[in-house]
Write a protein that binds this DNA or RNA. Structure first.
Lengths: 297, 297
DNA sequence: ATATAGTATTCTAAAATGGAATGGGAGGCA
DNA sequence: TGCCTCCCATTCCATTTTAGAATACTATAT
């Protein structure tokens, strides 16, 4: 059952003339004739009485007409709704991000972008690092702000906004607290207080330890950075985290010492390669441009 | 836009599995895949997110779903309505008839038929003879009861229920009132009181006169037989009509004399050759059978 | 590593489509 | 009466669509 047939039927019910309907619907008279006959066959009724100078609708035709109109209207309404939805979607950026995003300069970029483009809506959602890439690849969001370690995924493209490095967080009284630099093996006997598996920091830390041929003793694993800091202050262990995370807790009670590692680490916007909504492209270009401006300063 | 695509979409929204939907709709998995893609292309949106072990509907799919269901429901409702209509129609006989039908034995046959088949509805409508054949041929009714003269129409079939003949109706005091038989030329000087053009009696009478090489003087032309009879009684002229019409007015005040003619004349049921509703066929067969029974008596 | 479940693709024959031209019947008109 | 015109039906043909069958491809599970 093709809606085109219903369209023809409805138009024909108005014109009662095959040639006119053919013109209205940009086809030929013969085609109209065939389609109407096909529709009649499909419905099993005769829709028009053909008398040789005019045609006239049958009782069955009168039954069909309101339904045909209704169905066509519904289909149009559907088309419109979809168009509206797509238009709105084209002006909406759904971004998933690590919870700490507001502490980075990327946040400034986002707020500036939104001020400059008030027509664009941004839906930000915090999500555990662990899930960000899944959400991105499954299409739940079209862009993420995440921390990467040794990034290597040819399906994705990214804009690095900041680089970060590993630091050790030590109690003030720790023997190595005054060091200028540390390697992780120097800490192999300390209890580790680290961010858990639901962050994407866990795996790189374990990897670092493994590279240094030891398995850390994990005294805390969780998501609360402030809690870790308190535990360090209280001599319950040491922590490995990112410098930019640690510096938010600048305190007299513990030391932050850079760690020598070979693991690249960046904060970046990431999206899949390929087609994107116009708002997304607008945002992407804005970030690329204004990041250079920022860095030039 | 083919409704089949919507059907597939709706079913797929339930199963979320191409193979299952293919089975439900008696087709193949590959076909489902193609149709869904075609639908997506046609609507310009993606309806399902394909993840490699399961598929999931998109937001756009959620928008489409209620419309698809509604359209399919409407189409089903339409089908049902048409079926009901056809079924009712199949049990209804629409018969147009000359006004005098109740005076013939055909009327008895009809009432007997309706008693025997109470499920059949008969819609009788009186119509002027002149229009009966037009109504029949244009499909306004599927069967007529009419009077025929020299019937010859290969598109129609008929059952003759009674034969009739022309009679002259004369005032008692008319010089020819006592004749056993008359030819029409014997009446050429009398004023004619005849049934008008809207009956199909007018033309045959004129034809009879023309065959006898005279043009009658028409003193009355109309549809009221009773009026004609009164006029005859009052010596205002003579009339030519059918015997069975005349004998309903059996009176002492005028004579009915058979007329010698070569014009065949019958009362009959007539329908177009070809397909008919079951009720119509039932009726036709009933008349054929029971007419023989009647005639055998 | 292999099997499995699930969608996409390709190939092919059959069917539907649509355009153009032709057929054919009834009404209008001279 | 005969011609013309209006209109729906039909036919021919090239193009497109369709549906089935087999095959490819890929992520998950074992």
């Amino acid at each position: 059952m093709d809606l085109q047939k219903l369209k023809i039927f409805v138009d024909l019910s108005k014109t009662l003339n095959y040639t006119d309907t053919a013109e209205n619907l940009f086809t030929t008279q013969g085609n109209i004739s065939k389609q109407v006959m096909a529709l009649e066959k499909e419905l099993g009724v005769s829709l028009f009485k053909r008398a040789h100078r005019k045609i006239e609708m049958t009782q069955q035709g009168e039954i069909v007409l309101p339904y045909a109109k209704k169905i066509l209207l519904d289909y149009n309404e559907l088309s419109n709704k979809l168009n509206d939805f797509q238009a709105a979607k084209n002006l909406t950026i759904e971004m998933h991000t690590i919870p700490t995003m507001p502490s980075y300069q990327s946040f400034t970029l986002i707020t500036q972008f939104l001020q400059k483009h008030p027509e664009v809506h941004m839906q930000l959602r915090e999500e555990e690092s662990y899930n960000l890439f899944t959400s991105l690849k499954s299409g739940k969001c079209e862009i993420i702000f995440a921390r990467t370690f040794d990034f290597d995924d040819s399906d994705l493209e990214r804009i690095i906004t900041e680089e970060d490095k590993f630091v050790a967080v030590l109690p003030k009284k720790h023997p190595l607290a005054k060091s200028e630099k540390l390697t992780i093996s120097q800490l192999k006997n300390d209890p580790f207080l680290i961010l858990g598996k639901s962050t994407n920091l866990y795996d790189p830390v374990i990897k670092l330890c493994r590279q240094a041929h030891f398995t850390p003793r994990i005294a805390y694993e969780g998501t609360r950075v402030d809690l870790i800091m308190q535990m360090v202050q209280n001599n319950m262990g040491i922590s490995i985290m990112m410098q930019k995370t640690a510096q938010n807790f600048d305190s007299e009670e513990f030391s932050i010492v850079p760690l020598t590692t070979n693991i690249a680490n960046e904060l970046c916007f990431i999206r899949v390669k390929g087609e994107h909504s116009s708002a997304n492209n607008l945002f992407w270009k804005y970030i690329q441009t204004n990041l250079k401006v920022l860095q030039a300063k």
